[in-house]
Structure formats: C-alpha cells, structure tokens
Amino acid sequence: MHSGKRFGALEFAVWTKRSIYILTLLSAIPTVLYYCGWTFLSFPWQPIAIMGTAVAFIVGFKNNASYSRLWEARQIYGAIINDSRSFGYILRDSLSGKNPEKVKEMFLRHYAWLTALRFQLRESRPWENMDTAQFEEYAQKYEVPEKVNKLDKELESYLSGEELHYILSKKNRATQLIACQSRELSEIYNKGEINDFQWSQINQQLVKFTDNQGKAERIKNFPYPRNFSSITTYLLLLFIVFVPFGLLKEFDKLGDNTFFEGFTVWFNIPFSLLVTWCFYTLDSVGEASVNPFEGSPNDVPITQISRTIEIDMRDMLDESDLPPAITPTNNIIL
C-alpha cells in the first residue's frame, strides 16, 4: 500500500518508461514514413476514435473490477482485525482465571495463523504481475517480508517444536492452525474450564476466521476473468498501433498555408504518445490493483495488519515486550 499523498509524476514516468520507449517508436515510424512520401499510410481518424471509445469503456470496466477486488480484500482483513480483538478478550476473560497458560498458547497460535495466512496469500500465481520487468524494477524500492523471510523461522516463535513440525507437514498451514485451535477449545470445554456459552462464543470466532480465510483465498486463487483481460489487451494494442496513423493527415493539414507547412506532421509523435500513454497507463493501473495479495505497492498491507493485531492482543495480556509496528519504506507498506 502506498502511504504517501500520491505517486509522484517521476515515479509514474519511471514505472512506465519501457512503455514510453515503445509508444514513442510506434508513433515515430509512421510519421517518418509519411514525411518521406508514404502518404497512403494515413487512415481516417473516425474509426479509430470509435475504437478508442470501446477501449475506454472496457479499460474503465477493468479498473472498476480491480478496485472492487482490492476493496473486498481490505474489508476481509478489516473483519480479521475486529474478529481477532473479539477473540482475544473473550478467550482471555473466559479462561485466564482458570488456565492462563492455555490463553497464552492459543494467543500464540493465533499469531501463527496470521503469519501462515499472509505467507500463503503472498505465494505467486501464474496470472500475477510481479515477475514482469515493470513491476520487478519498482519492487526494488521496498521489500516483501514474505519473499525475504522463511515461514518456518517466523512460526518458531509461536509454536512448540512438535506442533511446528506437524503444521509444516500440512499443505494449508493456516487451515490446520484453526483446526488446532478448535481441538484445543474442545479439550478445554470437556475439562469444564469453560461453560456452554463461552465455548459457543469462542467457537463462533474460529468460524469467522475460517470464513475470512476462505474469502481471501477466493480472491487469491481466482484471477480477473481471462476473457475480459484478454479482450482488453487486444483492443488496447490495436488502438495504440492505429492512433499514430489516424492523426497523420490531421497534423499535416495543421500547417497548411503557414510558415510551418510540411513540418507540423512531426507533432504527430508527441501527441500520439500522449494519447496512447494515457490509455496504456490506465490499463496498467488496473492491472497493478487486480491481485491485492501479490506484493505490489498497491497491495492490502496484510503484514502490517497482522503485526497490528499481534500488538493489540499482546497488549490485552499486559505484555511489556511488544513487537515494533511495521513502518513504510519509501512510502510503501506491506
């Protein structure tokens, strides 16, 4: 997540510099050929304008869908924050007088669940964008903790050696940690340490965690539909290629009967670049937000949220040695 007021103009220029080079070349080639006498390369601008309208609609649709996925992901983690706090004080107040060590153990297992979940959500998928040159270069401005650190090392501080070995042997570690919490809760209930109402309250929180995990996994594992993504790419590519051809004659006529006659066609390069860059960048912005857990600068900050939850829950137990809050690096916080 970008925590500054805005992405700077220079950041946008650097982020899109490869596209600027390509778009400048695509604008320059027909202009040079037209100036050299290949005037038949000029196309009527009207069909291209109609194509541009279609591209604008479909790019706008994609951006709306991308924002919806991003906002839903943020709502899911907002629910995890609230449910974690509720889980913490309900468990503490139900059990601390009878078995404070078990409270601490279940708190630690919850931190482990948050850790395992964020590592799972940061795993790469074939349709994500972080392995492209454009995103890889920008990613040098910050670090994705789940790409730098190891899951087993982070879980060591939360789980016993036996439980850690058991969890690491599973495919979906986050799910199995919730299952361990449920088993632990059943044992506590069977021993009579909590009553029916307390068991029901705590169990409801575990169900909510499972529900929110499933929602996050749905966004992670189901990409923006490939048919919509593909048609957007193809229409945008056609529009970018044809725009310089559609503006050739218009800029050439701009200098008629003036001192600049015959030279105004060169305006085709910067203006075609500007138009195509706007459309391409709008599409890139949508593409940068469509996968909200991949580790891009527009991601939901699940690492920071998980740390905030851990700090709040440790504070509930009056612990003094709290972990530090995660702060932005170059205005990027994950």
Rank of each mutant, 00 (worst) to 15 (best):
residue 45 W to T: 14
residue 332 I to Q: 06
residue 209 F to C: 10
residue 114 L to K: 08
residue 152 D to H: 14
residue 239 F to L: 12
residue 307 R to T: 08
residue 43 F to G: 11
residue 270 P to Y: 00
residue 97 G to R: 04
residue 58 I to N: 11
residue 93 D to S: 14
residue 80 I to R: 09
residue 264 T to M: 15
residue 8 G to I: 02
residue 125 R to Q: 07
residue 109 R to H: 05
residue 18 R to C: 02
residue 24 T to W: 07
residue 169 S to V: 04
residue 167 I to F: 06
residue 144 V to A: 01
residue 313 M to C: 05
residue 296 S to R: 13
residue 251 F to P: 02
residue 16 T to H: 14
residue 148 V to G: 03
residue 284 S to H: 05
residue 192 G to E: 02
residue 272 S to G: 06
residue 306 S to M: 01
residue 241 V to Y: 04
residue 187 E to N: 14
residue 181 Q to V: 11
residue 169 S to W: 00
residue 78 G to M: 06
residue 222 F to C: 11
residue 148 V to A: 08
residue 85 R to K: 01
residue 217 E to L: 15
residue 112 A to S: 08
residue 330 N to K: 12
residue 332 I to A: 07
residue 169 S to Y: 00
residue 327 T to R: 13
residue 6 R to C: 04
residue 261 E to G: 13
residue 305 I to P: 10
residue 38 W to Y: 11
residue 38 W to P: 00
residue 234 Y to C: 06
residue 19 S to M: 13
residue 123 E to P: 03
residue 80 I to L: 13
residue 36 C to E: 06
residue 128 E to F: 04
residue 282 L to Q: 13
residue 219 I to N: 02
residue 171 K to N: 08
residue 330 N to S: 12
residue 208 K to M: 09
residue 170 K to N: 03
residue 268 N to S: 04
residue 317 L to Q: 11
residue 93 D to N: 13
residue 182 S to M: 10
residue 233 T to Q: 11
residue 165 H to P: 03
residue 12 F to N: 14
residue 322 L to E: 00
residue 230 S to L: 06
residue 119 F to C: 09
residue 169 S to H: 03
residue 123 E to T: 12
residue 8 G to R: 09
residue 175 T to M: 02
residue 164 L to P: 12
residue 73 A to K: 12
residue 171 K to A: 02
residue 22 I to T: 15
residue 69 R to H: 02
residue 188 I to G: 07
residue 285 V to F: 07
residue 265 V to M: 08
residue 239 F to W: 10
residue 7 F to H: 13
residue 40 F to H: 12
residue 65 A to H: 10
residue 268 N to Q: 03
residue 56 A to E: 02
residue 187 E to S: 14
residue 260 F to G: 08
residue 297 P to C: 03
residue 149 N to C: 10
residue 317 L to W: 05
residue 236 L to R: 04
residue 74 R to H: 01
residue 279 F to V: 12
residue 119 F to M: 07
residue 11 E to K: 11
residue 267 F to H: 09
residue 290 V to F: 06
residue 33 L to N: 01
residue 141 K to Y: 00
residue 43 F to E: 07
